[in-house]
Each structure stands twice: as structure tokens, then as C-alpha cells.
């Protein structure tokens, strides 16, 4: 690992720990009440959802409008798993139960991603978008009709295992994994498909395999996000995972910039916190939200960050450089 990379990791690690400490102090001193902690937890879950969707929508460049379906699969399967575990009398520490449930939720969603992705990824563009909508609607209707998970009335009595501490670190780990994916051999192969499918196929990349991989991984992380959602809300309702929720997640990714993970993170934060802040004008908030979307598409269609990533290291370096320039001008020693 070269020096620059080490420095970058160090700076990011410090920033992450510092941010955590800030939240920790705010929560411990009750400056942040339960309502705000709830928003923070939902923000973390939405960050995971947006980043996972960005694997398909940003890296692979395909329109996936059924992300809520995978989230629902993850949520329901992990909730059933943890309920069975707790009913079975196994008294594991809560964090282990949560992690196991997350892994189960992620894997089940991932398997469905694989099963759905394999036939559908032959389609492209709008058609793929429509098929993913179709699948996620079928999943939702399945849960409405499926008795064992409560049907339309919803699944009640899930143990609440998620709190800010664990959801924060899980989000960090997921973010790290997805960032690493983006830079790995597989990630670069996926990005090359976005740039030009035919050219990358000619360059010897098995495009179908990588497309399915991207789709399954996105479904896996969506399942993880769904598991967290289930163990935070402790109540699941099929109507939550409708078409509009998928669109909402897609909007987050597009506004952040397709292919920019930091963009997804920031836009997930803004678009989860802002509507809560606008609660008092709740009537107009979705109106404003949709107007922002239209205006954004007309004037900055590539999203806030486009495809580039926000880098803390580069940001700090540019700050230092600017300071030096200022100092040198102030000192009158322009060379």
C-alpha cells in the first residue's frame, strides 16, 4: 500500500470515527431526541439502499425500477428468520442475531436477484425498467396474499434489534464494500459494460455474467437494507414496498449522480432529512420534491456529482493549497 493510499484511509477513518463520536455525544446528552435518532437510522438505511441501487443503475448503467421488491424480500426473510430464531429459544446476543438475519435477508434477496436477473438482463433500457417494475409488483402482491407473513395486514412482532450504533457501523461496512467493488476487477468490468457493451464484449469480458453479478450484488445489499428496515420498524407492511418507493430510491441515485457513490450518500441524506424537516408543510413537500426533480433534470441532468466521487483527502489538500496560496500572497512573496 503506497503512502498516499495509507494517508487517504487514515483521513477517512478519522472522519468516520469523529462523525460517530459527534452523534454518540449528541445522543448520550439527549440533544438528539428519539425522533432525530429515528431519522438518522432511516437515513443510514436509505444510504445502503441508494448505494446498492447505484451498482445497477450507476455502475452497470441499466434502469432498475424494482429495488423495493428486493428490499421487501430481504426484510421479510430476515424478519421471519430472526423471529424463528428467537421463538426457538436461542438466546444469542442481539448483534449476532441481527448480523445473521442480515446475511439471510441479503442472501435470499441476492438469490432472487440472480433468478430474476438471469433471464431479464437480455433486455435493455426502458424494457428492463418495465420488467423490473413488473417483478417488484409481483413480489408485493405475493406478500399481500402470503398468509404466513401476515398478508395484507403486515408482519408484526419483529424484535427491534437496530439502534444507531450498529446501523452506523453496518452502513460504513456496506459503503466500504461497495466502494471496493467499484475499484475491483469485477467493478471495472461492470463499468466497462456501461460505457460500451459491444466493445467490452469484444475485449473478452463475459458481459452477461457480470451483468447478472451486478444485479445479484445490488439485490443482496438491498436485502441487507431491507433487513435493517425490518428490525428497526419491527413491523412490515407490503404496501410500503410499492412502485413509488422504488422510484423514490431511483430518484435519490439520479440526483446524487449515476455512478457516484458519495453522490448517492449525500443525496440519500438530503432527501431523507429534508422531507422530515418540511413536515410542517407536509402537503407541499412532495410537490416541491417533484419540482426539484424536474428542474434538476433540465439544468443538471448528470446529478449533483455526475460520475465523480467526493474525496475527503483531495478536499483537505485543496484547502491546504488554497491556504498556502493566500499566505504567499499575503506575505508578498509571489514567486
Amino acid at each position: 500500500m503506497d503512502h498516499n493510499k495509507k494517508k487517504a484511509y487514515l483521513i477517512n477513518a478519522i472522519a468516520i470515527v469523529a462523525l460517530y463520536l459527534v452523534f454518540f455525544v449528541l445522543i448520550q446528552t439527549k440533544t438528539m431526541n428519539n425522533y432525530f435518532v429515528g431519522i438518522a437510522i432511516m437515513t443510514c438505511i436509505m444510504i445502503i439502499m441508494a448505494m446498492s441501487l447505484n451498482i445497477v443503475a450507476g455502475f452497470l448503467g441499466e434502469m432498475a425500477l424494482g429495488h423495493a421488491g428486493f428490499m421487501a424480500i430481504g426484510a421479510y426473510s430476515s424478519a421471519s428468520f430472526s423471529m424463528a430464531l428467537i421463538d426457538g429459544g436461542l438466546s444469542l446476543p442481539p448483534i449476532i442475531t441481527l448480523v445473521l438475519a442480515m446475511v439471510v435477508g441479503g442472501i435470499v434477496a441476492g438469490i432472487f436477484g440472480f433468478l430474476i436477473g438471469t433471464p431479464t438482463l437480455r433486455l435493455r433500457g426502458d424494457y428492463l425498467g418495465i420488467v423490473t417494475i413488473g417483478f417488484s409488483e409481483i413480489i408485493r402482491i405475493f406478500f399481500i396474499n402470503f398468509g404466513p407473513t401476515g398478508g395484507a395486514a403486515g408482519l408484526k412482532g419483529i424484535t427491534r434489534l437496530v439502534n444507531f450504533n450498529n446501523v452506523y457501523w453496518i452502513t460504513i461496512i456496506v459503503a466500504f464494500l461497495i466502494f471496493t467493488l467499484g475499484r475491483s476487477k469485477q467493478g471495472r468490468a461492470i463499468i466497462s459494460i456501461r460505457e460500451d457493451e459491444i466493445a467490452s464484449e469484444a475485449a473478452g469480458i463475459p458481459t452477461t455474467r457480470y451483468k447478472v453479478l451486478a444485479f445479484s450484488l445490488a439485490a443482496f445489499f438491498a436485502g441487507v437494507g431491507g433487513s435493517l428496515y425490518a428490525h428497526y420498524q419491527s413491523f412490515l407492511e407490503p404496501s410500503k414496498f410499492g412502485f413509488m418507493f422504488s422510484i423514490e430510491m431511483f430518484v435519490i441515485v439520479v440526483l446524487g449522480g449515476l455512478g457516484s457513490l458519495t453522490g448517492s450518500i449525500i443525496s440519500a441524506i438530503v432527501l431523507t432529512v429534508l422531507p422530515e424537516m418540511l413536515r410542517s408543510f407536509s402537503e407541499y413537500r412532495l410537490l416541491v420534491y417533484s419540482l426539484v426533480l424536474i428542474i434538476m433534470m433540465i439544468f443538471r441532468p448528470q446529478g449533483i456529482f455526475g460520475r465523480s466521487e467526493f474525496s475527503l483527502t483531495a478536499f483537505i489538500e485543496s484547502l491546504i493549497r488554497r491556504k498556502n496560496v493566500k499566505n504567499s500572497i499575503g506575505g508578498g512573496e509571489a514567486s
Binding site: M63, G125, D126, G129, I247, F250, V251, V254, L258, Y284, L286, L287, Y289, S290, L291, L293, I294, M297, I298, P301
Partner: peptide, 18 residues
């Protein structure tokens, strides 16, 4: 890009609904 137009359409749909 067609994706931008599509998202605008989604935006218009949300706008009209609200």
C-alpha cells in the same frame, strides 16, 4: 440522454399527483 427525460416524466407524474 433518454434517462433524464424519463426521470423528468416521473417528476411530472409525481408533481401532478401531489
Amino acid at each position: 440522454p433518454r434517462l433524464s427525460a424519463l426521470i423528468t416524466a416521473i417528476g411530472v407524474s409525481l408533481f401532478l399527483q401531489n
